[in-house]
C-alpha cells in the first residue's frame, strides 16, 4: 500500500499584502482607446514587423508559395531566376507604393496573376524561363506596391519593407529548392494539387472582387 502520489505544485498565491492593490489591474481597461494598427508589433523593431506582416498576410503568402512551387516545378533555371527577380521587384514595388497608392485595378491584375500561377502549377506544362520570370516580375511589383502603400500611412520605415522582402526571398529559395529536387511522381502530384487549390482560391477571389463591384 505504498502508493506514490504525484507531487502537485503548490497553488499560485498572491501575497495578502499586495491583494488590496489588484483593483488597479482591473481599472486599466478604462484607459484603453481604439487601436487600428495594420502591422503586427513584434516588439523587435520594424524589420521584424515586416517579417511578421508577410507571414500573416494570406494573399502575400499565397503568391510567394505559388511562385516558389511553379519555379521549382519548372526546373533549376526558372528557380534561379525567380529567387532573384521576385524579391527585387517586390522591393521596387514597395518603394513605388510608398510614393503612389496602387489603383483599384491592381487587385484584379494581382488576382489574375495568382490564378495563372495556380493553373500553371496544376497543369504542369513546360513553359519558357521568361514566362516564369514575367510572372515573378508582375507579382513582385503588384504585391510590393500594395505592401508599400499599406505600410507607409502607418508610420513604418523602409526597414519593414526590407523585412517583408527578405521573408519573400527566404520562402522562395527554400521552397523552390525543395520542389526542384522532387523525384517521386506522387510528390509532384501533391504540388500540382496545391496549385489547383491556389487556382481555386484565386477564382473565388475574382468572384469576391466582382461582387464588390456589383455592390
Amino acid at each position: 500500500m505504498n502508493e506514490r502520489r504525484p507531487q502537485l505544485p503548490p497553488p499560485l498565491r498572491i501575497p495578502s499584502k499586495g491583494r488590496g492593490h489588484l483593483w488597479f489591474v482591473f481599472l486599466l481597461p478604462l484607459a484603453t482607446t481604439q487601436l487600428n494598427a495594420h502591422l503586427v508589433q513584434t516588439g523587435f523593431g520594424t524589420f521584424y514587423d515586416g517579417i511578421a506582416h508577410l507571414l500573416i498576410t494570406p494573399s502575400d503568402l499565397m503568391v510567394t508559395v505559388g511562385l516558389a512551387l511553379l519555379a521549382g516545378m519548372q526546373g533549376k533555371p526558372s528557380t534561379r531566376r525567380v529567387m532573384i527577380v521576385l524579391p527585387a521587384f517586390w522591393l521596387a514595388g514597395g518603394f513605388l507604393g510608398m510614393a503612389v497608392a496602387p489603383p483599384p485595378v491592381a487587385d484584379w491584375i494581382a488576382t489574375l496573376t495568382v490564378l495563372s500561377i495556380g493553373v500553371l502549377i496544376a497543369f504542369d506544362p513546360r513553359i519558357p524561363v521568361w514566362l516564369t520570370s514575367a510572372l515573378a516580375i508582375l507579382s513582385g511589383l503588384l504585391f510590393g506596391w500594395v505592401n508599400g502603400a499599406t505600410m507607409t500611412p502607418l508610420g513604418t520605415d523602409r526597414l519593414a519593407l526590407v523585412g517583408a522582402v527578405s521573408t519573400v526571398f527566404v520562402i522562395v529559395t527554400l521552397l523552390s529548392a525543395m520542389v526542384v529536387d522532387l523525384r517521386p511522381p506522387w510528390a509532384r502530384i501533391i504540388v500540382r494539387v496545391g496549385g489547383s487549390w491556389i487556382a481555386a482560391i484565386s477564382l473565388l477571389m475574382l468572384g469576391w472582387l466582382a461582387k464588390g463591384l456589383m455592390g
Partner: peptide
C-alpha cells in the same frame, strides 16, 4: 473596468 473599456481592433 470592463463596462467602460474601449474596443481594441488588433489589426
Amino acid at each position: 473596468g470592463l463596462a467602460f473599456s474601449g474596443t481594441a481592433l488588433g489589426h
